[in-house]
Design a protein around this nucleic acid. Sequence first.
RNA 1: GCGGGUGUAGCUCAGUGGUAGAGCGUCACGUUGCCAACGUGAAUGUCGUGAGUUCGAAUCUCAUCACCCGCUCCA
Length: 561
Amino acid sequence: MTSESANPSSTPAATRSMDDIVALCRRRGFIWQSSEIYGGINGFWDYGPLGTELKRNLKEAWWHDIVRCPGRGPDGELIDMVGVDCTIIMNPKVWEASGHVGGFNDPMVDDKETKQRFRADHLQGMFGAIESEHAPAVMKFRNNLVDTTVIPLRTFIASNPSEAVSILEHDKRMQKDLGIRKIRFTPEHVGERFRIALADIGDGERCYYIDVIESGLLEKAAERVPSPYTGKPGSLTKPRQFNLMFITFVGAVQDEESKAYLRPETAQGIFCNFWNVVDTSRVKVPFGIAQQGKAFRNEVTPRNFTFRSREFEQMEIEFFIRPDQANEWYRFWRDSRYAWWKSIGLAGDNLQLREHEKEELAHYAKEGAGVCDIEYRFPFTAPGFGELEGVAHRADFDLKAHANACGKGDKLRYFDQERNERYFPHVIEPSAGADRGTLALLCEAYTPDGARPSGVFMKFHPRLAPIKAAIFPLVNKDGMPEIAEKLYMLLREKWAVQIDVKQTIGKRYARMDEAGTPYCFTIDSDTLQDQTVTVRHRDTLQQERLGIDKVQAFLSEKIGG
RNA sequence: GCGGGUGUAGCUCAGUGGUAGAGCGUCACGUUGCCAACGUGAAUGUCGUGAGUUCGAAUCUCAUCACCCGCUCCA
């Protein structure tokens, strides 16, 4: 399944140990566990000096290539892209409109067999049977529902009992299975609850009772409740609360009124500011809004180093287009984002593009031009892949949802002057993880090499390397340190460089190998004579001599800037 | 959330009831003449944390936290 020949420079994921990578990250100051001296906190990570430079380089490369210099679109025109920087805490109504509160704040039940998930309070049960003359006993029956001896015969997904009745009315096969010959409502309604009557097999009328299944029943006897999808018991989980959004309170009083959320994605800040951007920035469809920022998800199981963190950073684009041009723009962003990750060093066959099957699409993307993931083969996912960036056609779901939720509705449609029509633009969303990208860069760079003293070196693309170059006096005397410092002061104005005068030259090279520094300049006794230094190349260990006045030009050529 | 495992110096680990150790790394000084060289010296430990048993706990017990593996979850 893996092709070994695609790129010989890419270390196969299977040969890299995640433990070794984590150890190097910690030892050299790339990434540490948050609050480590207190025992850490699950799902939160800090970046040390080298990690901070690396992540910053990734974000700056993205910002440069996406916002400042975005190139040309499929129509051959220069792409219009602007940036925003929105708050983490927004009006809670944002998350109601986006669907994050409604869909995920209620206890949910999974059917393990069909992999379906539904709200626990939408599970209706058909209980029975009770003789109709005993209808008054129904109340007593209801009160005992949490008694696990009372298990529904069938279950339905419906928001209320009458909807469940109507499902049964239209399902002739289910009626046959249950021996139901006729359905009518009994005259005795108890409150708003429904009962149905039916003629059982020569046994007189019996009263089947349909009502929502109390959470207590699922808590105590989920394994005995039949699945609404298969009719078989044993595959339902207990109701579980999926509080994936972090809750906080705005103001000193903590009550329901002051409740707010830490954003689970940066996208909604962009959507809510869509109209502000249109009104102030002289952009017109097609155009994009980009944002980098923290997002928070209370993951059930943070795991795999920084891959699934509870606090993480996103780099998101919402690209607004005419609905009829969704396909070409979707393909454009899918392909250009894939090419971008390759361009910053994830060039081997550890990177792949994967189109989603229709079945796994989110609620907002079922009918769209497509969804794909750009995935990286991390050591902990190998031979599988983990998501770095998702590109999704979200249609007009979000803009419409906010337009409707804020009460202005169609008045907020975008006016297309060229075509003289009003519409809600569709959106292609390339949404990348900055922390996942940084982790992929670390994993890709990690290159064991028994031939060198460090045993390993970090083969970062020079554009992303945390330290671009190091300056060493071969020995710390004879005027060499003075020349080194002068060169260092010159170079640091443009690049992240370090000077190191301590210990032997071998140790200094080894340290730079683990930091992933692509070039080391060494001042030796020849420098004093002919004004040249040695350049040591990280990947090949080879050295060449270079005039000290050529060093800046050398770095400009290799790194840019 | 469930089950299993791990936790001693920055790293790798030794220590199984009786004074917390080694190698590497780090730092200083000397030496240096291009790949973790050498010599001398130094710093670095809530033995994950908290309780319990004991005259005495890194060691035994319980709880807890963190990490790893497998399920589960992942809009």
